[in-house]
Design a protein around this nucleic acid. Structure first.
Lengths: 195, 195
DNA sequence: TCCAATGGCTAGCGCTGCTAGGATAGCGTC
DNA sequence: GACGCTATCCTAGCAGCGCTAGCCATTGGA
């Protein structure tokens, strides 16, 4: 009884160790350095052990991504708590989002570039995904005015995501980062023109 | 003399064949299906032949990406030619951009997700890159008003890129595609608010 | 006619994600 | 206390990856 409990505990501990190690390895050496062999070596177990915890390497990346969404939701939540006006809320969320992405590039890659099988916007979506998008929605809703809040949120989110990914690939002038963010938020807060 | 010319011609023909085949294979079966072995089989040559044309697989992807930027520049140019007012120009460019990305998903991936070594916004940038960004800049400049044209273009481009990539990953509601694009263009055309 | 050189091929290296099968350790039962 | 059973983990290996060394044939020039 107690022994089984201990084993259970050790298993979940090792489970977390795998995810944590994968994330660290990715953040320090890039995802291309995260191979099952290297990962196994780091956690000081043999390779097949990974497959007793995860269906495959993709599942490990997905686990890291989920962790990322959880943290992103937290970051956005704190940003929202610090804001009073709708404009402040949107500004704070935008800054929090891009800061998060810049501070955790490999994590962000896991969330948006490497992972394709996470079901978004569905009833069976994992809680962290719902939480993260919910925070974005909350930050955007008040600023949306008479525009559809969800569509507005999708657009704002896309714009932030685009800024992050294009900047990452060296596609944008690095020193203009803040100007771009300011311009974007300004446009989102503006009364819409006729397209 | 003439024989060398013939050889030269055959070489450039095979060079184009490699790029074309890689692109086709990627578009029909995805980039993960584009392996050097399969590619060699398709062009009916042995594997090492690829390496007499390109430094490695990455270089082949880059070649495909460059082709993409060339075509994107053309698409944007035609969109701009059909527009009269600044608002029309921006709207047409946005539609052309997203249509291009949706119609050529693998090509778009090569341009923005798989390729990391293309130097952007530099004097030594390849011509197609300059052309594509130049077209975007042209479409945005008139709509930028008193905002900095280049920064405005970077933001607009990022927003479009974000819309494309998030939609691709199933992150956005597919049926709202046009609403999002309309809302985005409307916001970009609006007189900016204070962030 | 012979030599040199070029161009393409076969074979193989080290790596990848993943898995089959054997060894080992600890459980419940006699 | 000794047994068999089960669960756990490891060694070894598979197929496929990007890439390269070294050989062979064909061809152009002396």
């Amino acid at each position: 009884m107690s022994i089984q409990e201990r084993r259970e505990r050790e298993r979940t501990h090792r489970h977390r160790l795998i995810v944590k190690t994968a994330r660290e390895l990715a953040e320090t050496e890039g995802w291309e350095a995260v191979t099952t062999r290297r990962l196994a070596e780091r956690i000081e177990y043999s390779q097949p052990v990974l497959y007793s915890h995860f269906a495959g390497k993709d599942a490990i990346v997905t686990a890291v991504a989920l962790e990322g969404f959880e943290e992103l939701a937290g970051v956005l939540s704190r940003a929202r708590a610090s804001a009073v006006t709708p404009a402040e809320a949107l500004t704070a969320a935008a800054r929090a989002y891009t800061d998060f992405a810049d501070a955790n590039p490999a994590l962000y890659d896991a969330m948006f570039t490497l992972t394709t099988d996470l079901p978004f916007g569905r009833p069976d979506s994992p809680a962290p995904l719902k939480a993260a998008f919910g925070e974005l929605l909350a930050a955007c809703t008040s600023a949306a005015g008479d525009r559809d809040a969800e569509t507005f949120t999708e657009v704002a989110w896309s714009a932030l995501h685009g800024l992050v990914t294009l900047a990452r690939g060296g596609r944008l002038r690095t020193e203009q980062r803040d100007q771009r963010l300011g311009l974007l938020v300004g446009q989102l807060l503006a009364a819409p023109g006729r397209p």
